[in-house]
């Protein structure tokens, strides 16, 4: 329940830190302002600064209201919702681990596309993700994993005239 109770405050803190980093570091180094600019509102960093200041204010508001409401009891509705979500999901730590694994797999998939090309990488990706879903029906899995990427590859190449990268097989 800790996360549910303090999620506003945590989000507010992240937002404030992010905004400050933007204002102090990222905008000065990565947004070029030409010297010839005379009108403040026409400056390339004008909008960016406004947006960041608004998000800083939102962050501050969330910290304030989040800490205030954290003292109160969570409403019954909310507790019921959290309990319902718990029945669906793994325990919080396991959920985080799974999410991290999935995201790492995404980026491995990306690297494999660069290396092995779209088709082979997708074959591997389908197999890995289907296995991760707990599926063990190889007789369905393997044909799907083979036919889907190859089919899509030829669809894009022949019908849409869009070549997909083939990595080292190019």
């Amino acid at each position: 329940m800790f996360f549910a109770r303090f999620s506003d405050a945590i989000l507010g803190a992240i937002l404030c830190i992010g905004s400050l980093v933007m204002i102090l570091v990222i905008i000065p180094i990565s947004v070029q302002v030409p010297k010839s600019n005379k009108v403040l509102a026409l400056s390339p960093d004008f909008w960016i600064k406004i947006i960041v200041w608004i998000s800083l204010a939102l962050g501050a508001y969330l910290i304030y209201s989040g800490l205030k409401s954290a003292k109160e009891q969570l409403s019954e509705e909310k507790i019921a919702d959290i309990k319902y979500q718990r029945t669906l999901h793994h325990s919080p730590s396991r959920s985080v681990t799974m999410a991290v694994i999935v995201v790492i797999n995404f980026f491995v998939y990306y690297l494999l596309i660069d290396l092995l090309g779209m088709v082979l990488a997708s074959v591997i990706a389908v197999i890995v993700f289907v296995l991760m879903c707990g599926e063990r029906r190889y007789k369905i899995m393997l044909p799907v994993a083979m036919l889907l990427p190859v089919g899509l590859y030829y669809f894009f190449l022949k019908v849409a005239s869009i070549p997909m990268p083939l990595g080292i097989f190019y």
Binding site: A125, V126, F129, C133
Partner: peptide, 24 residues
Amino acid sequence: PNSFLYPIVLVLCVFGCYAVGNTM
């Protein structure tokens, strides 16, 4: 089944996304 649907959707997204911009 969901165990196939989600991986298939992922592959579709990857192909489609690449096809629009033609860039990794």
